[in-house]
Amino acid sequence: MHRHPAAPAHPPRDEDHGHGLADDLPRLLALAAPRRRVLSWLATVAGSAALGGCGGGGSSDTVDTSTSTTTTGTSGSSGSGSSSTGTTTTTSGSCIADPQETAGPYPADGTNTASGSTSDVLTAAGIVRSDIRSSFLGSTNIAQGVPVVLTLTLVDTNASCAPLAGYAIYLWHCDRAGNYSLYTAASESYLRGVQVSDSAGQVTFTTIFPGCYAGRWPHIHFEVFASQAAATTGRNAVLISQLALPSAVCSAVYPAATGYSASVGNFAGVSLSGDNVFGDNTAAQLAAMTPSFSGSVSDGYTASATIGIAR
Rank of each mutant, 00 (worst) to 15 (best):
Y190A: 11
H2P: 09
I309N: 03
T102H: 03
P218D: 06
D23Y: 10
R129Y: 13
C250K: 01
C212I: 07
S160N: 15
Y180A: 14
S139H: 11
S261D: 13
A162R: 05
G178I: 14
H17R: 12
E188C: 04
A268K: 12
R36I: 07
G73Q: 10
N266V: 12
L152Q: 13
S292W: 01
G274F: 06
L191R: 07
D299C: 00
V224S: 10
S82W: 00
S77I: 05
A124K: 14
L191Y: 06
S134E: 10
V146T: 14
A159C: 05
A185R: 15
S263K: 06
G53K: 13
R129E: 11
V63I: 15
G53S: 14
L243S: 02
G81F: 04
L182S: 09
T70N: 12
V45F: 10
I169V: 15
T70G: 10
L31S: 04
V253C: 04
S261E: 13
V277A: 10
C161R: 04
T233R: 11
Y260S: 04
N266A: 09
V270S: 06
A185Q: 14
R176P: 00
Y167D: 08
L243W: 04
P107S: 12
V238D: 03
A305T: 10
F209T: 00
Y260L: 06
V121T: 04
L164Y: 01
P210W: 06
S115F: 03
G56C: 07
Q195H: 05
G76V: 06
D98G: 00
T140K: 13
S48H: 09
T151N: 08
A7P: 08
T70Y: 08
S292Q: 14
T90V: 13
L137W: 01
G55L: 15
L272A: 02
G110E: 08
L239Q: 05
R35D: 08
R235V: 04
G53A: 15
G269I: 03
S261T: 11
D14I: 06
V45H: 05
R311L: 13
H10F: 11
T89I: 13
G259F: 03
L25Y: 05
E101W: 08
S48D: 08
F267P: 00
G193R: 03
P8S: 12
Y301S: 01
T206H: 03
A143E: 14
D275Q: 10
T207L: 12
S80G: 02
R311C: 02
G193H: 04
D275P: 03
G265N: 14
F209D: 01
T290S: 07
R192M: 15
T74M: 07
T206E: 13
